[in-house]
Design a protein around this nucleic acid. Structure first.
Length: 425
RNA sequence: GGAGGGAUGGGUGAGUGGUUGAAACCGGCGGUCUUGAAAACCGUUAGCCUCGCAAGGGGCUCGGGGGUUCGAAUCCCUCUCCCUCCGCCA
């Protein structure tokens, strides 16, 4: 949510920024609704001031056992007027809130203006894609051949866009989570959190997933419970409606969770393999930061996520998303894209964003400097990393001509020294 | 799932229709005293919206929403959450 006063004072600027994001008409009614709301509000409040004053007079008269019926009759009339004006003010207020809830964040000035993914800009590259002297296989062939991935039975027990990991495949998934969590908690100063995988709708409003993106989520029938699409939702909402001390910031949390996404509207996209699943696991990094520090924190959070790819020896690049490709709540986003030899391209494996005060306003996340006034803090998060996509990146990048997969050095201590996955005879 | 009890400011906790936006205590902040600190004492200490160039007004908020009333923290309805007991259960 944007600040109401900010929109009012910078209407043309905000309109231009939102046009760049692909929301050209969203503020069309803002000025009218804002003015009407305040008009009725002021009229109602003037009458309420009168009512409060007279109520005291009535109380005083009653105390002295004097007649107050004339005043009471007048107030009855006034009360009716107030009710009417309140209703009008509320109607415009509801309209304004609805409007505010549906306005995306304003991009940071450093974000490239663009109209789609081709306008994203590469920031840096790490690692050299390996040269294969054979045709590298895709993970959806390698995995089943190694006996560590089973799509057919997943389709039977659940449906499409699900996978079953078996044997060392399941263990590799588990071990990747441990490796990531250990790195972030031991070396990067994050505190581990294990939140619920189910949240209420208020939490989803807080992060900006609702009301606009309900179709992307799984809802539990007949309840106000939703499966989380990312740990960002429960973890960002941890301190909802609370006031933190400035000294606590930046507060750095990391969480392993399963994530659930309906993937409505992605038909035909990434249909093979485990790239796009209804359920996947992710280690998420979340920061609560001082406003003046949040862009430094975005850089360091992105670096924290990159370290995982570097330790695993997976080539990647960092891309800054253009205005049209950013998520609804974000002011600036870096995507980390890992090299996939089977498709010969870089594929998103992490998304690191600064939301500035956008989520903080929605979730009422504040802090205080000393005895000063409360301020909204800034929230950030990024995948560190998506585990399923890391799993397949390891399998594909480390595959050998004989169908085996070499285990990256960094993971071997987690796998009892195992050096290689070998297909069964 | 059944029965009962509760939700008040940063915290504990008074308050059952009319200067109670809210006592008291604790905590926080400022000050007096002190070589310094502690103690003691004094003062101060919510948020949001809105009018105004400002100074300064006004409105709303006692878990959320609705209602009764001239007037609601106080009465009614409803929802949410928490606690206790019973049942069930990893």
């Amino acid at each position: 949510m944007l600040d109401l006063g900010f929109i009012r004072d910078n209407l043309e600027l905000v309109k231009r920024k939102l046009r760049e994001r692909g929301f050209p008409d969203i503020l069309e009614n803002f000025d009218t609704v804002d003015r009407e709301r305040r008009k009725f509000l002021v009229e109602a409040e003037n009458r309420k001031a009168r009512r409060n004053k007279v109520s005291d007079e009535i109380a005083a008269l009653k105390k002295q056992k004097q007649d107050a019926s004339a005043l009471i009759a007048e107030m009855k009339q006034l009360g009716a007027e107030i009710q009417e004006l309140d209703a009008k003010a509320k109607a415009y207020d509801d309209q304004l809130r609805e409007l505010l809830r549906n306005i995306p964040n304003v991009p940071h000035p450093s974000v490239p203006v663009g109209s789609g993914p081709p306008d994203n800009q590469e920031v840096r590259r790490w690692g050299e894609p390996r040269r294969f002297d054979f045709a590298p296989q895709a993970h959806w062939d390698l995995g089943p051949a190694l006996g560590i991935l089973d799509f057919d039975r997943a389709a039977k027990i659940a449906g499409t866009r699900f996978a079953v990991y078996t044997g060392l495949g399941a263990k590799l998934e588990r071990v990747l989570a441990n490796f990531m969590l250990d790195t972030h908690t031991r070396e990067h100063g994050y505190t581990e959190v294990l939140p619920p995988f189910i949240v209420n709708s208020a939490s989803l409003y807080g992060t900006g997933n609702l009301p606009k993106f309900a179709a992307d989520l799984f809802k539990l029938e007949g309840t106000d419970y939703w499966l989380i699409p990312t740990a960002e939702v429960p973890v960002t909402n941890l301190y909802r409606d609370e006031v933190l001390e400035a000294e606590q910031l930046p507060l750095k949390l990391c969480a392993w969770t399963a994530c659930f996404r309906s993937e409505a509207g992605s038909y035909g996209k990434d249909t093979r393999g485990i790239i796009r699943q209804h359920q996947f696991q992710k280690v998420e990094l979340v920061k609560f930061a001082l406003p003046e520090k949040s862009y430094d924190e975005l850089e360091s959070l992105t670096r924290d996520a990159e370290v995982i790819l570097q330790r695993l020896g997976l080539p990647y690049r960092v891309v800054v998303l253009c205005t049209a490709d950013m998520g609804f709540s974000s002011a600036k986003t870096y995507d980390l894209e890992v090299w996939l030899p089977s498709s010969g391209e870089y594929k998103e494996i992490s998304s690191c964003s600064n939301f500035e005060a956008f989520q903080a306003r929605r979730a009422n996340l504040r802090f205080r400097r000393g005895a000063g006034k409360t301020e909204f803090l800034h929230t950030l998060n990024g995948s560190g990393l998506a585990i399923g996509r890391t799993w397949l990146a390891v399998i594909e990048n480390y595959q050998q001509a004989d169908g085996s997969v070499v285990i990256p050095q960094a993971l071997r201590p987690y796998l009892d020294g195992l050096e290689r996955l070998v297909p069964p005879k």
